[in-house]
């Protein structure tokens, strides 16, 4: 499988992370999204007329939606499947709010930044409320006591919220959820989401 990848993209990271956690190898094809806008080049538009990243290619199958990619990567892995649909939609709204705030703050994209942050905070409050109720039931992940593609879809834009000027300081359950994800065997980091250094000492 080939992933057309941009190292700073939260959506590309979802796919890299899912592959790493499930022990699947991806061939990474770096795309110069910034500053060269290579994702809009004629060659890339041939692959994905929508001009977005990531793009996942598995032989003749070309996927351009990250939820489709997560489903594809876990199609034979029932342990990574749960009641995911609503959360995949939620992840999309995280990308449209916190994700856009981040692109504004980091790469200078033109975004209504106050509206993006405000809607992002609203979503974080919903996420915090749900994860708090999960903890009352003794569960740490979104749909149960093990992670599914729902968690992987929602994690990157949540964890990267501070890049877009949205603090995660006041969400104890979100923080514990992120920590549980970062503790998973095979976890990989991306810039802005560092590994748990405390685990290294324990090894």
């Amino acid at each position: 499988m080939i992933l057309y990848d941009y190292v700073l993209s939260a959506s590309c990271y979802k796919i890299r992370l899912m592959a790493a956690l499930s022990g699947q190898k991806l061939e990474l094809q770096a795309v110069n999204f910034h500053p060269a806008r290579e994702h809009k080049s004629p060659e890339m538009l041939k692959l994905n007329p929508g001009g977005t990243l990531p793009i996942l290619r598995d032989e003749d199958l070309i996927m351009t939606d990250s939820s489709d990619m997560l489903r594809h990567l876990t199609r034979n892995l029932p342990e990574w499947q749960g009641d995911d649909d609503g959360w995949l939609d939620f992840a999309r709204t995280l990308n449209e709010t916190l994700g856009m705030a981040r692109l504004h703050d980091v790469l200078g994209f033109e975004v209504d930044i106050d509206a993006a942050r405000k809607r992002g905070v609203h979503l974080l409050r919903l996420l915090e409320a749900h994860l708090t109720e999960q903890r009352f039931d003794g569960m740490i992940f979104l749909t149960g006591d093990t992670p599914t593609i729902a968690d992987i879809a929602c994690f990157p834009n949540t964890a990267l919220a501070p890049d877009g000027g949205v603090s995660l300081d006041v969400y104890p359950s979100i923080r514990l959820w992120m920590r549980a994800l970062r503790s998973l065997p095979g976890f990989i980091e991306m810039p802005g989401i560092h590994r748990l250094h405390e685990l290294e000492a324990a090894e």
């Binding site: 190292v7 700073l8 910034h34 980091v106 501070p162 890049d163 991306m190 810039p191 802005g192 560092h194």
Partner: peptide, 9 residues
């Protein structure tokens, strides 16, 4: 970009 974004936080 990866290296610099690790520094940004």
């Amino acid at each position: 970009q990866l290296i610099f974004m690790q520094d940004r936080s």
